[in-house]
Design a protein around this nucleic acid. Structure first.
Length: 945
RNA sequence: GGGCGGUUGGCUCAGUGGUAGAGCGCCUCGUUCACACCGAGGAGGUCGCUGGUUCAAAUCCAGUACUGCCCACCA
């Protein structure tokens, strides 16, 4: 078998994926007699909304590399793929698609709309799987799951029912995050808080006159009037003068000045001034709160306030929630449109008035003047009206955190509504323990704290969504408004003791994350007791993005422990976020995303994988560089060409086996380097330091194997070496090292390694299940003696190359070289590799001699460890130039030596530093001294001082 | 406001106590039979800043600046 001259990734990648698929290489069975050790990953199921992005490519490259690694290690490795129905997201894209045809989902009706969603799923679900194929993912496609598969739906309802029966799921009217665009509630973690420049409005609310009987309250205001009492104007009658900047309103307010009563005195009564960023919600105010400790308002608590723009009266209450130092210390309370206000409302038994509806428009309760207005128009209008009434005191710039919908970016409206909730606290406790006691480990471990902090403050989970696409909540209502959760309509009828026809199922669907929360066990078959579940659960690894630690990871841990009584996975690897070249998040709206498929088409999946893994370690983000993918492609190209070279030197009967006793130093050296690389890569994969593993492989292959070993071995490959047997030794070592390297790198770059491996002497049908190189099965150990010997050779070769280059000698000119090994090891090393040195240093001849050439006019020299190399350049030499060169080097050596000697001369150093360090430093000094002597000698010969 | 990252040659990043490395880019040279997606050589950094610990700090400690991410109900 032969490799084509050019490396064409697309061709071999498609070819091999089809082959693997056809031969069912990815399919695993729990009862495989040769693979008893389970290794399982369930991949994060991508949303069916579109196509895979670079983050998916990164994560699935990591997952696949680890899967392949374990498979080759002999584990029964199974990675289970799947897709997520992604409730809101999918509904949004399908709606958008319909909108292009001028249709809304309401035109279609629920059933038809859901059909449309299924059509979408069919098309895009398949498209996503195809992308995984392109990437080379060796997932068990027979086990692929979709969160709306029948069996999966069973699991979801089982979960719901069990929690229901334990009283963990309940219905309640609470303020939830409402997205007026999606027309649904969303959970806290689906809300993104963004900082916006906004305004803080100070509004006056007039007190109602004290009831005649309740006189004598100690809250009566001082009789001061900053604004001209006696203008004789009734409440809200004629327009008051506009408030300007210099107006003596209450400039002392806001700074927490407790000595001043922050009330306004106006004609016809007193005012209390509140501060708000959302004036439109005032229509739903049911109280104003001040802090009980706030002296400014002491005695006023309990008085009624005439809520402007309405005909309602609301009380001034005391509640800790009002912070004295903020604004005026008085806060309006709108229980139906703010979570804190909601809670304050409950504490103080305040009415809840919904003034903004589900569509983001003001409701009837907002009054005839406002009803029907959009919430932002209503804000404008409320302000105008307040200003007209002279009740708008001032407007300040204020940075506010605005909640946005994670899916569509619309500003969230906190809204009082009836929703289904799941109580999380009892589920969180065991999930906290599992991480604390190390049963589950986060990598990098900094995420442990992030997880625990959230879990320890866990809140009830709003699990209902007002959508059509999703799992409908299994609750049925009787006509008398009794309800129950049940496995079926019949079941519900029995439970409620009402005829089935009279029942109606709850309209809401479950939060998407409610279904993904049981991914690991449900995909393996739960609630049925399957062999898969028994064999592969708990799974080994969950590799995912940082942003879904709460949304997904935490919840899987909770459900896994709750239903299986066992952790869902042992390790959680949080991979980096892929950013664009400038470091900005990739996003559709910014249009800065890079499509993995484009990269694959351009450079190959192996190149993309190689690049991504080079950057996958414990880092927080990756700045994606397309150019680096190209460079990763050049590595593959190098691998390809080096393999072609090796193959062209092999005979049919080459086995890659060799006789230990015939190995030369360079053979032992490359085997030693290989052994170390194998060790490093295995360790790095085990600790999720893929980046380090890639660097080690890269350096080994390109630098050690290609640049040095192959080049050094070339002379031995010449036919005239045939008889000695050394040629075959060299060829077999070449084959052996390359074959092992291919297996070593197969998990990361599966396609090219398979293609080359198949063309090599090898055992087995596919590299996919060939044994992964480990210290145990390779039996090779680092060989320090060979390493030292080859280091000397390399140094000599570099010495010659340097001399040539620094003296600007004609590179075409063949020159004679010589070396003096002042120590025996060095001499022997040089002697044994004379041929390689001659070749690599482009010498016409090379000899090892006992003494340095004395003719300074003919020879230039350069020290190496344990000796010195010389180049004979004859009359062409410019003595001055060479003297300069030597002098420069001598001076540098002097300087370095002086620094080291100073350190050694310091008794503090020799006394306190570790003995090894001192020893090392002494050796360093000795080497430098030797070098300096040689340089000095050369200078003398050349006639320098 | 809290937490967590990052800050090292032009770029992307390694480097957790012994005096700075890689790849790319750049400069010089090279078309001999694996590869110009190549080979050889070279230039280039007082490791954000300040202070401390230490015989010795890119590395440990404290502070500070800038940058990014996550979390958070101050109206």
């Amino acid at each position: 078998m032969e490799l084509s001259k050019a490396y064409e990734p697309t061709i071999i990648e498609d070819k091999w994926y089809a082959d693997w698929l056809a031969k069912r290489r990815f399919a695993a069975t729990p009862d495989d007699p040769n693979r008893s050790n389970p290794y399982c990953i369930t991949i994060p199921p991508p949303n069916i909304t579109g196509s895979l992005h670079m983050g998916h490519a990164l994560n699935n490259t990591i997952i696949d590399a680890l899967t392949r690694w374990h498979r080759m290690l002999g584990d029964n490795a199974m990675t289970l793929p799947g897709t997520d129905h992604a409730g809101i997201a999918t509904q949004n894209v399908v709606e958008k698609q319909l909108a292009k045809q001028g249709i809304s989902r309401h035109d279609l009706g629920r059933e038809k709309f859901i059909e449309k969603c299924w059509e979408w799923r069919k098309e895009y679900g398949d498209r996503i799987y195809l992308q995984f194929h392109k990437l080379g993912c060796s997932y068990d496609w027979d086990r692929a799951r979709f969160t709306m598969d029948e069996s999966y739906v069973d699991a979801i309802y089982e979960q719901f029912l069990r929690w229901w029966e334990r009283g963990l799921i309940y219905r309640g009217a609470r303020v939830v995050n409402w997205c007026p665009r999606c027309q649904s509630a969303i959970s806290d973690i689906e809300v993104n808080s963004e900082e916006r420049q906004g305004k803080l409005y100070h509004l006056r609310y007039p007190f109602s006159p004290p009831a005649p009987n309740s006189g004598g309250d100690n809250g009566s205001p001082p009789a001061a009037d900053h604004e001209g009492e006696g203008r004789g104007r009734g409440d809200g009658e004629e327009a008051p003068p506009k408030l300007g900047a210099g107006e003596p309103t209450h400039p002392e307010l806001g700074a927490g000045n407790l000595d001043v009563l922050p009330q306004d005195w106006g004609p016809g009564g007193t005012y209390i001034t509140i501060a708000t960023t959302r004036p439109e919600t005032m229509l739903g105010d049911t109280a104003v709160a001040v802090n009980p400790a706030d002296k400014r308002y002491a005695g006023l608590v309990g008085r009624m306030i005439k809520l402007p723009l309405t005909d309602r009266e609301i009380p001034l209450i005391a509640d800790d929630y009002a912070k004295m130092e903020f604004g005026t210390g008085a806060v309006k309370v709108t229980p139906a449109h703010d979570l804190n206000d909601f809670e304050a409302g409950l504490r103080n038994k305040l009415p809840q008035i919904v003034v903004i509806g589900e569509d983001g428009r003001m409701t009837q309760a907002a009054g005839p003047e406002f009803a029907g207005l959009d919430r932002f128009e209503a804000r404008k209008k409320a302000l105008e009206r307040m200003e007209e009434l002279g009740l708008l005191v001032k407007v300040e710039d204020h940075v506010i955190q605005t909640p946005h919908c994670d899916r569509c970016g619309t500003i969230i409206e906190p809204l009082l509504s009836e929703q289904w909730f799941a109580e999380m606290k009892p589920l969180a406790a065991p999930a906290i323990d599992a991480v604390k006691d190390g049963r589950i480990r986060f990598v990098p471990d900094r995420y442990t704290r992030i997880y625990l902090d959230w879990m320890e403050k866990i809140q009830p989970w709003c699990i209902s969504r007002q959508l059509w696409w999703g799992h409908r909540i299994p609750v049925w209502w009787a006509q008398d408004d009794r309800f129950t959760a049940a496995r079926s309509l019949e079941d519900a009828a029995a439970k409620l003791g009402a005829p089935a026809e009279s029942l109606r199922q709850d309209e809401d669907v479950l939060d998407t994350w409610f279904s993904s929360a049981l991914w690991p066990h449900a995909t393996l078959g739960w609630p049925r007791e399957t062999v898969d579940l028994d064999f592969w659960y708990p799974t080994n690894l969950l590799s995912t993005a940082q942003e879904i630690i709460y949304l997904w990871v935490a919840r899987m841990i909770m459900t896994g422990l709750d239903f299986m009584g066992e952790i869902p996975f042992r390790e959680v690897y949080i991979h980096a976020t892929v950013l664009d070249e400038k470091g900005a998040r990739m996003s559709k709206s910014k249009g800065n995303g890079v499509d993995p498929l484009d990269m694959i088409e351009k450079y190959g999946a192996d190149a993309l994988r190689f690049y991504l893994l080079q950057n996958a370690g414990k880092n927080q983000d990756i700045k994606f560089r397309g150019d680096s993918v190209r460079l990763a492609g050049t590595f593959c190209n190098k691998l390809w060409n080096a393999s072609r070279f090796v193959l062209s030197n092999l005979d049919e009967n080459m086995t890659g086996e060799f006789d230990e006793s015939r190995l030369t130093a360079m053979d032992r050296w490359i085997l030693s380097r290989l052994a170390q690389t194998i060790e490093t890569v295995n360790t790095n994969l085990a600790t999720y330091d893929m980046d380090d593993g890639m660097a080690a492989s890269y350096r080994f292959f390109w630098s050690d194997f290609c640049d040095w070993y192959i080049e050094m071995v070339k002379p031995r490959l010449r036919l005239e070496h045939e008889d000695s047997g050394d040629r075959d030794t060299a060829r077999n070592v070449l084959a052996y090292v390359l074959e092992a390297t291919l297996r070593l790198m197969h998990p990361m770059i599966p396609f090219i390694t398979e293609e080359i491996w198949q063309a090599m002497p090898h055992k087995g049908e596919t590299i996919m299940i060939a044994p992964y190189p480990t210290r145990e099965n390779m039996g090779a150990r680092p060989d320090p003696a060979a390493e030292a010997e080859i280091a000397t050779i390399m140094e000599a070769i570099r010495g010659f190359r340097n001399l040539r280059s620094e003296l600007k000698l004609d590179p075409a000119r063949k020159l004679s070289g010589a070396a003096v090994g002042s120590d025996a090891d060095c001499a022997r090393a040089l002697e044994s590799s004379a041929q390689a040195i001659t070749d690599l240093a482009r010498l016409s001849s090379f000899e090892v001699r006992d003494d340095a050439p004395s003719d300074g006019g003919q020879w230039v020299g350069s020290p190496v460890t344990g000796g010195e190399v010389f180049l004979e350049i004859g009359e062409a030499m410019d003595i001055t130039k060479e003297l300069d060169r030597i002098t420069k080097e001598w001076e540098a050596t002097e300087k370095e030596l002086a620094a080291i000697q100073a350190r050694l001369g310091n008794p503090q150093f020799t006394g306190r530093a570790a003995a090894v360090v001192v020893e090392k430093t002494r050796a360093q000094a000795a080497d430098l001294e030797q070098k300096r002597e040689k340089l000095a000698e050369r200078r003398k010969i050349l006639g320098g001082q």
